[in-house]
């Protein structure tokens, strides 16, 4: 008997158990933040049920599901934060930026350490980010884009934490240029990749490579923008 069909029933049952348990927990919950956290569990259940099919089609369904789920959770958490800000509006006049919390505030007064001068804080984020970006470029596609973006995010967040922020004007320039780059890559992916498949089916390999690389660059640059919003 095939291993996938042997495990199919069990995996689906486990997925449904998780889904029902977490949906029940959401229904009993009163705090919004806890609901947001528990909806991550529902996503786990969905992934397990899809993975039970065990074919390439299942994998192709999981990839956009992951990306869409991340975008959904990001949007819902933003809405929650904004609503709480309006609700508890006491004295906070300044508008908060996305991912502002990861910037180091002023150093504590008793400790006399200059974080900007520590060698490890300078060199190691570059190294880790470089490895992630190169590995993402090798992977290509959605996966490569996500890996690349986590490298970029890590680098930009660590840049903010060591206090070497970028000025607002330069940030605007970078923002515009990266989103323009991402749009061009989108055009490459759709126009040259997909239309090429239909026009020249004999040379599908070249168009497949163009589509994969352009998709990697597009997802990587778009997700990397999240880290760029901090100062």
């Amino acid at each position: 008997m095939n291993i996938v069909s042997y495990l199919f029933n069990k995996t689906v049952i486990v997925g449904f158990i998780i889904g029902i348990l977490s949906l029940y927990a959401i229904s009993r919950q009163k705090s919004d933040l806890h609901m947001l956290l528990l909806s991550d569990l529902v996503e786990c259940a969905m992934l397990v049920v899809i993975a039970a099919v065990g074919t390439d089609l299942a994998e192709a369904l999981i990839l956009p599901g992951l990306v869409v789920g991340m975008a959904e959770l990001l949007a819902v958490s933003e809405v929650l934060v904004l609503r709480n800000e309006i609700k508890y509006k006491k004295k906070s006049n300044e508008k908060s930026k996305l991912l502002e919390e990861f910037i180091a505030k002023e150093t504590p007064p008793n400790i006399n350490i200059k974080f900007g001068k520590m060698e490890v804080l300078y060199s190691s984020p570059k190294f880790v980010a470089f490895i992630l970006v190169v590995y993402g470029a090798l992977l290509t596609g959605f996966t490569g884009g996500a890996v690349m973006a986590s490298g970029l995010l890590f680098y930009l967040l660590s840049l903010g934490a060591t206090g070497n922020g970028i000025s607002l004007n330069r940030l605007k320039n970078i923002w515009e240029s990266i989103s323009g780059f991402s749009g061009i890559m989108w055009a490459f992916w759709i126009l040259f990749g997909f239309i090429g498949f239909f026009l020249y089916p004999q040379k599908y390999l070249y168009f497949l490579l163009i589509a994969g690389c352009a998709l990697a660059l597009k997802v990587g640059s778009k997700l990397g923008l999240i880290g760029n919003i901090l100062k």
């Binding site: 992934l47 992951l66 958490s77 890996v147 997700l223």
Partner: peptide, 19 residues
């Protein structure tokens, strides 16, 4: 591919939730 993407997306989600 699904495993790699899941790990990468999870690391971004952690930042979002902690925020």
């Amino acid at each position: 591919l699904a495993l790699m993407t899941y790990i990468a997306v999870n690391s971004v989600l952690m930042l979002v939730f902690v925020r």
